[in-house]
């Protein structure tokens, strides 16, 4: 396995995540797709760290995980709040603000 394979895999994962954001309606799932994008970046970072022989990449990946965790907290809080109000977690239903 070459490095390129890992990178391509990461890129594919990132793309899947991005496309998921575009096509999925449930806010939680959309959020999960974003998490997938973040994790694909982690894979990229670790691959590069491995390739260059530095630890920075791994450290950054750890940071990303922490940040992602924080993001989950905030994100779920917001999504919960809106779910409780609307009884729906579909992002297409939050459509009052437009034009």
């Amino acid at each position: 396995m070459t490095i390129t394979n890992y990178l391509v895999l990461a890129a594919i994962l990132f793309t899947i995540g991005a496309v998921g954001v575009l096509v999925r309606r449930n806010a939680i799932v959309v959020f999960m797709c974003i998490e997938l994008m973040l994790n694909s970046v982690n894979l990229t970072l670790i691959t590069f760290a491995r390739a260059s022989g530095t630890v920075e990449g791994q450290v950054i990946a750890l940071f990303v995980m922490v940040v992602a965790a924080a993001e989950v907290v905030v994100g779920l809080a917001i999504i919960m709040a809106i779910y409780r109000t609307r009884r729906s977690a579909s992002v297409d239903d939050v459509n009052l603000l437009k034009y």
């Binding site: 991005a18 954001v21 575009l22 096509v23 309606r25 959309v30 992002v91 297409d92 939050v94 459509n95 009052l96 603000l97 437009k98 034009y99």
Partner: peptide
């Protein structure tokens, strides 16, 4: 052009992408 501002998160995301 304002019509493009549909209010749908997903279309915004598409625009960003």
């Amino acid at each position: 052009l304002g019509r493009a501002q549909t209010g749908f998160v997903r279309s915004y995301a598409l625009g960003m992408l």
